[in-house]
Design a protein around this nucleic acid. Structure first.
Length: 421
RNA sequence: CGGGGAGUAGCUCAGUCUGGUAGAGUACUAGUUUUGGGAACUAGGUGUCGCAGGUUCGAAUCCUGUCUCCCCGACCA
């Protein structure tokens, strides 16, 4: 893509009061644009990053046998009354449709998938099974904030699994847990994301959250020394839980744990039969008896994850996208402005493209070198290739790795091989 | 939902205290010169001063109401 044609621009300044790092960087780099508190437009490169994150999530979900579906975001009031959550979820968006009919915008989808599952699950032979979707969710947050970290409209992957026994759910739950770990690793957050024990709500003893450590997080977690797991503050005073979670627990030892702020980038719940009972989802077991499937649900906010990555993986110059989610692998920058030089840049650009490399070409003219280089740092594409008078004279290309800042003059063929790694 | 801050040019902001008819930087357009870390000069267009009402000869400025955004807290199936 040529930068002169991109439906996206960098900007030097953002409002002084907007202090979350992800909002500042993503807005400056032009990846997102705020429509209102908690609702953002994703511009081409922003959407590209989001899509790549969601692609990773899909791959990991597919790998554990979950199947992708898509459910409506617009839902009737009635399914929510069945589970009693029409009145208990205070962030539920409620609206009137034609004929004064009451609708809900989906904040989560147990109410939709559980009745749906009845059309598929009739026998123990239909179990276990699992389906997920990635979709725009709506929550009427009293205070949407922190850029992509807490939106009123946001993207989320939600997976639901159905089982005949608790053991089978437990086993699948562990599989999902491993898949989640891979997602965060592939997104570059593996080292600062902790599997965190949290209260299970009405459904089970504990749930697990995936918490990425950042000063801008809303949660406080306690890291269990020598592990990559943590405990959410909400259960840190529950002695029974601590005994359960920590091997060789000694009274008061949690006070020594490192305490950090973190943002929840995923959670996994065991639901038991709460929803299958409420929605009358039943199957016939081997012995002919009627039973309720045991359910699990598993969420990852993909847009929040993108915000967390921007928040955590960046430096004073701007964003630094991990390779797998970067909008482009190469940022080709022309620092020559005569016709002859531009021709050479065009050739490089076309060669990169014909080699199947995702390349953004800064073909803007009449702009100072400094501005182009600063923009490149801000945008955060992993590899920068500069073409200037100097590089043309030597028949080389200048490669800079965004993460390390390491710069080398290399042959063009080597650039191709670096990008194909 | 409680507390605090803010809404003025595409963007970032000054001007509001002390009322007098709209500003800067940046961006944009044309031209000339520049070109490896946010250039220089010349010329040019840019506004319901968030919205509604009130006071006044006159309101961006004072008063009342209201909406929105940001921050802290509460909340977070």
């Amino acid at each position: 893509m040529k930068q002169t044609q991109l439906f996206q621009k960098t900007t030097k300044e953002v409002k002084q009061t907007d202090i979350s790092r992800n909002a500042e960087l993503l807005t400056k780099a032009g990846y997102v644009n705020q429509l209102m508190a908690g609702a953002y437009t994703y511009l081409p490169m922003g959407l590209s990053v989001l899509n790549k994150i969601e692609k990773i999530i899909k791959e990991e979900m597919n790998a554990i046998g979950a199947q992708e579906i898509l459910m409506p975001a617009l839902q009737p009031k009635e399914v929510w009354e069945k589970t009693g959550r029409y009145d208990t979820i205070d962030v539920l968006f409620k609206l009137k449709g034609a004929g004064e009919r009451d609708f809900v915008l989906g904040a989560t989808h147990e109410e939709v998938i559980t009745p749906l599952a009845q059309t598929i699950i009739n026998s123990y032979k239909d179990l276990p099974t699992a389906a997920y979707q990635i979709q725009t969710k709506f929550r009427n947050e009293a205070r949407a904030k922190s850029g992509l970290l807490r939106g009123r409209e946001f993207r989320m992957k939600d997976l639901y699994s159905f089982h005949t026994t608790q053991e089978d759910l437990d086993e699948y739950y562990e599989k999902v847990s491993e898949a989640y770990k891979r997602v965060y690793e592939r997104c570059g957050l593996g080292h600062i994301t902790k599997k965190t024990y949290a209260s299970g709500g009405a459904f089970s003893k504990y749930s697990h959250e995936y918490q990425t450590i950042t000063e801008y997080g809303e949660d406080i977690i306690y890291i269990i020394p020598g592990t990559d797991t943590a405990i959410n503050k909400e259960i840190i005073n529950d002695k029974e839980a601590l005994k359960d979670i920590i091997p060789n627990y000694k009274d008061g030892m949690e006070k020594e744990f490192e305490q950090v702020k973190a943002i929840e980038v995923g959670n996994i719940f065991k639901l038991g039969t709460k929803f299958s009972q409420a929605c009358e989802l039943k199957y016939t077991d081997k012995d002919g008896s009627t039973k309720y499937p045991i359910m699990g649900c598993y969420g990852i906010g993909s847009s929040r994850l993108m915000g967390a990555i921007a928040e955590c993986i960046s430096d004073d110059k701007g964003l630094i996208w991990p390779k797998e989610i970067a909008p482009y692998q190469a940022h080709l920058i022309s620092l020559v402005f005569d016709e002859e030089g531009m021709k050479i840049c065009e050739e490089y650009y076309n060669k990169l493209k014909s080699n199947g490399i995702e390349v953004l070409f800064d073909d803007r003219t009449g702009i100072q070198a400094g501005e182009k280089l600063k923009d490149s740092d801000l945008i955060g594409i992993p590899n920068r290739f500069v073409i200037s008078k100097k590089t043309i004279e030597q028949n080389k290309i200048e490669w800079t790795e965004r993460l390390t800042g390491k710069t080398e003059l290399i042959d063009f063929d080597k650039a191709i091989s670096i990008l194909k790694e």
